[in-house]
């Protein structure tokens, strides 16, 4: 067999997962909401890098709950709106003066390509994800009430691997010195699995 024949035979087995259908009608609306989630994530990262805050206004309306989440190492009230007018779940965080400092929204994709609002616990999990911040020339990882100085823990590739725990939950966190971080409940995410852009 030629290399091309070998390659084609191997890659012909890689298909979209069973049961996953391309749902074009649904996705016209979802695209807007998913972009919102992406924008919210980007805002958070920018805010953390800059050591400041960023505002992303969320236009919400639906079943609302106020929950406690960790944000920048402090417990903060978050208003979570489950199933807003677009069928998504949104959140907004306010400062002590009641001003919105961050917000966003998102949907979860089902196996058949349809979507549903994120549940309250999924949104809380999203909001409680570890964060990396810098200050005074140091780099810290924030996870709930924990603040860990990781400045001197990076290897030659600019990666830091550490485990954080809270209650029964253990997270394996891979932090890059110059970009984002990735966490898993199963194992450390390795360099080759991270976006190449993070190392440029």
């Amino acid at each position: 067999m030629t290399n091309r024949e070998k390659y084609r035979r191997a890659f012909s087995s890689l298909r979209m997962p069973e049961g996953y259908s391309v749902s074009l009608r649904q996705r016209r609306r979802d695209q807007k909401k998913r972009l919102k989630l992406a924008a919210a994530a980007a805002c958070a990262m920018l805010a953390l890098c800059a050591g400041g805050v960023s505002v992303y206004a969320a236009d919400l309306g639906g079943v609302q709950r106020t929950v406690q989440v960790w944000f920048h190492g402090d417990q903060t009230s978050a208003l979570i709106t489950i199933g807003d007018e677009d069928g998504a779940t949104g959140y907004s965080l306010q400062d002590a003066e009641g001003r919105t400092i961050q917000g966003g929204g998102g949907v979860a994709m089902e196996g058949d390509g349809s979507d549903r609002p994120l549940t309250e616990s999924e949104m809380q999990e999203y909001l409680n994800y570890p964060e990396k911040i810098t200050g005074d020339g140091r780099i810290y990882l924030l996870y709930k009430d924990q603040r860990i100085d990781i400045t001197d823990l990076f290897d030659a590739d600019g990666l830091c691997f550490l485990t954080v725990s809270s209650g029964s939950e253990t997270l394996y966190v891979t932090v890059t010195r110059n970009a984002g971080l990735s966490a898993s409940t199963k194992r450390y995410v390795q360099k080759k699995e991270l976006p190449e852009e993070w190392f440029r």
Partner: peptide, 28 residues
């Protein structure tokens, strides 16, 4: 754009993929 938080999914996907021949998996 997104926080990469569930990236172990690739290993699960490969484990669940049925290749025609063992060497196909090695190549992929």
């Amino acid at each position: 754009s997104f926080w990469n938080r569930n990236r172990v999914a690739f290993e699960d996907y490969m484990e669940n993929t049925q290749f025609q021949e063992p060497e196909d998996r090695s190549l992929a």
